[in-house]
């Protein structure tokens, strides 16, 4: 579906993307996970064809570079910023983009999208009056107006409340269920773990590893930690089999408390980069 081969991009003395390669399969939700400044948004911009790489190649759907507008037609982008016209209503915004893409029945398409992002009740309100979460959802709807095969979501939950975040994650899952391919950048590891079929860990413009969350954890997460409390004393045990370890500890008797810490993407990131995801 999408292939990036050895992409490099520099801005002056800063290397934003440093030989990044990845392959996104049709129908999957692919997460690009990395801290702010890791090169995720630059990678997305290169994927859209809006930014030319200094080196490397991008191929979309086997049709070639997205720099070609005919190839780019298959892409939908929800940028990190809210890219809407605040002076226009929700419906006017979507109608504008639908007309830009030459959608045959724009009104029906727009109504469907407004319902999907649960903004139909506010369809005729100016976007500037929306909450952050509502703007995010409309931003996502604008990316879908031309029914693209590949949807690029750049930090789609940045700065929204937990309720809106959950709604956006549900929408992403729904889009995936429709058979769309989604590239999802985030620095929230729990989001990536929740919705991504595979995750690529990016830092300093390089792809450190790619895999499913269990695969990454298995490769880089290390052992689970089981902390057993007996009276006032805590005992921490590192194990590959936390369930078996807990059983063994209870069999020993005198256990007043147990805490199991399984490795997660944060642990993986720490292991791969030596720093926390949110640094």
């Amino acid at each position: 579906m999408l292939t990036l081969r050895d992409i490099r991009k520099r801005f002056g003395a800063t290397t934003a993307v440093d030989g990044l390669s990845l392959e996104v399969r049709a129908g999957e939700v692919f997460g690009l996970l990395g801290p702010n400044g890791a090169g995720k948004s630059t990678t997305i911009a290169i994927t859209t064809g809006l930014l030319a790489p200094d080196a490397g190649a991008v191929d979309l759907l086997g049709l070639g570079s997205p720099a070609d507008p005919r190839v780019r037609m298959h892409l939908g982008l929800a940028p990190q910023e809210i890219t809407l016209y605040g002076e226009l209503t929700a419906r006017e915004n979507l109608m504008f983009f639908a007309r830009l893409y030459g959608i045959a029945s724009p009104r029906a398409r727009v109504d469907g999208l407004l319902a999907m992002v649960e903004l139909d009740a506010r369809a005729n309100d100016r976007t500037a009056t929306f909450s952050g979460g509502m703007k995010r959802r409309l931003n996502l709807a604008a990316a879908l107006v031309h029914d693209p095969k590949l949807v690029l979501l750049d930090e789609p939950t940045a700065g929204v409340d937990p309720q809106s975040r959950n709604r956006i994650l549900e929408l992403v899952r729904a889009l995936a269920a429709e058979g769309r391919t989604i590239v999802y950048t985030t620095h929230y590891m729990e989001e990536a773990a929740k919705i991504c079929d595979r995750v690529g860990i990016v830092d300093h413009g390089r792809m450190l590893d790619i895999g499913t969350v269990p695969e990454l954890i298995a490769r880089h997460g290390g052992k689970s930690a089981v902390t057993v409390t007996r009276g006032e004393a805590d005992e921490r045990v590192l194990t590959d089999d936390p369930v078996g370890e807990v059983s063994r500890q209870f069999a020993g008797g005198g256990v007043t408390g147990v805490r199991v810490e399984r490795p997660d993407l944060e642990t993986v990131f720490l292991a791969l980069t030596g720093r926390s995801l949110r640094e």
């Binding site: 910023e81 890219t83 830009l100």
Partner: peptide, 14 residues
């Protein structure tokens, strides 16, 4: 500045 140019340039218009 408001980012909508990116959307416009993604659309099939030159």
């Amino acid at each position: 500045s408001r980012g909508t140019l990116a959307r416009l340039r993604l659309a099939p218009i030159g």
